[in-house]
Amino acid sequence: MGFLQSIDWMQILRCFVVGGIICVIGQILIDKTKLTPARILVIYVTAGAILGGLGIYKYLIDFAGAGATVPLTGFGANLAKGAIEEVKTSGLLGAFVGGVKVSAGGIAAAVFFGYIASLLAKPKIKKQ
């Protein structure tokens, strides 16, 4: 019960709305530009990294929390933030190490679970 009471419901609402809007922008790109999913994801991660590098994206994270970190722009911003922070402690080496270091969890999880899923699952047709 303590956990539920600790939740800031206004923050949850901000998360929902911002996360939703970021997705809607992607949807408009899909429907209006015929970009493939891979291209949309690349645009998002690059845009996120640039906004993160410029120090803009962190304001969105402060405002919306997971609404800004869960979309792929958040992944990009995290890469950039990691690189910048690592540069502070280890110089040029940090530029190479920092980004992947902070996002290693997500990448390793995707690779690992992807592999496991491929062992267990069989391709199926879309029933649509």
Binding site: L29, D31, L41, P71, S118
Partner: peptide, 23 residues
């Protein structure tokens, strides 16, 4: 559409789906 593609779930799906397909 983009609602499940843009969050990190879409990134995971894009890794898992070819892994299964090309088994």
């Amino acid at each position: 559409g983009a609602g499940s593609l843009i969050p990190i779930t879409g990134f995971a799906n894009s890794i898992v789906s070819p892994a299964i397909e090309y088994k």
